[in-house]
Design a protein around this nucleic acid. Sequence first.
DNA 1: AATCGAATTTGAAATGATTACAAATTTAGA
DNA 2: TCTAAATTTGTAATCATTTCAAATTCGATT
Lengths: 122, 122
Amino acid sequence: MAVMEYLMTHFTHPSVDEIYTALSPKYPTLSRTTVYNTLKLFVEQGAAQMLTIDEKMTCFDGDVSHHAHFLCKRCGKIYDLPLSDSAKEVLRMDMDGNAITEVHQYYKGVCKKCLEKDNMTN
Amino acid sequence: MAVMEYLMTHFTHPSVDEIYTALSPKYPTLSRTTVYNTLKLFVEQGAAQMLTIDEKMTCFDGDVSHHAHFLCKRCGKIYDLPLSDSAKEVLRMDMDGNAITEVHQYYKGVCKKCLEKDNMTN
DNA sequence: AATCGAATTTGAAATGATTACAAATTTAGA
DNA sequence: TCTAAATTTGTAATCATTTCAAATTCGATT
């Protein structure tokens, strides 16, 4: 499936629309609904993960390993970061008798690149 | 403001609708828009934080201290958890030259109570 | 307590991402 | 080629959130 290929080759944490827009020229009959359905399927099967970092839009990550994210509020880019060790531990601990299946960790701020741009214009 | 009082006395991480429904009887003229506006104001001023754990609905927390959350997928309740120390450190570290202003950490799974209910019916 | 401008609140309509669903198309096996 | 099943499509619904202009409330001043 072209959607999976896109996820595997692009590490931009794309939204449904980004994927749709990117694949549309190559697959002119592609519908947005299919992209939604396919991604939903991947998430259910554990082949992709859904990120709800931006409250407006869900985006997707083909890398299902446990890792954290960093959203730059200036440019909107999402970067990968290692998950903090203690966050990982929780997965095994089943804290307080609760069964924990997912760990989500993300940061927000301004990325290096945008900070450098700031400096140049000052 | 009644909205702030609700946030300060209820630790259920309420959605806009929960707040609106709860306050509506006491303030019959209250409109949902006002609840939206008020919460937006609080978040901007740092008096409350917005949680985007559930992709369907935003919810709000009057406790703005750095802490993690745990969403039970069975009953939908959101519990507070301490934030892992290493996650907190990142706030000061400004990782890799990026300026980090927010740390979000949450877990999903099934809470103790729901697990116990499972055992009873088996 | 009447007036007036500013600030807040209201409610209806718009927005926009996501979902539902039925019709159309494609697929694969015989 | 035929046919049933599976997938895809596109339109219409859904639903949380936002916009916005009109209505209301507030507060200071007389």
